[in-house]
């Protein structure tokens, strides 16, 4: 299947997962993205994106620890896959390349 690339929000979420590392789940990803972009993100958007990325194969997940705060419900923890990492790098390269080609900046 042709790779259509990552949407802006998808990219942010992937990066956030990478940054957070071990404890990446709905709430932490949401907070991370909010921290760096300064926008308010809705929880649902994050969840949907996480699932979509998982379907595309860029993330994998497993059920993790529970705390009392969540009413004894477990979290779904996400980790980036090799494919995901590769996708991130490719995106980054493309941006850099195009950025360098802008006349005014050179």
């Amino acid at each position: 299947m042709e790779n259509k690339g990552l949407g802006e929000f998808e990219e942010l979420v992937l990066l956030a997962v990478c940054i957070i590392g071990r404890d990446a789940y709905g709430i932490t990803v949401k907070k991370e993205v909010e921290k760096h972009t300064g926008r308010t993100i809705l929880l649902g958007a994050v969840h949907i994106t996480l699932y979509r990325l998982q379907d595309k194969g860029f993330l994998r997940s497993e059920m993790g620890g529970s705390t009392e705060k969540r009413g004894d419900r477990r979290k779904r923890l996400f980790k980036i896959t090799a494919a995901g990492m590769k996708q991130l790098r490719v995106s980054q390269d493309v941006r850099q390349k195009m950025w360098k080609l802008i006349p005014q900046l050179n």
């Binding site: 709905g26 709430i27 969840h47 969540r70």
Partner: peptide, 15 residues
């Protein structure tokens, strides 16, 4: 299948 984590996240944020 997805309900558990969703509700969990919701509760946490709620608190």
């Amino acid at each position: 299948a997805l309900q558990e984590e969703f509700f969990g996240d919701l509760s946490e944020t709620y608190e």
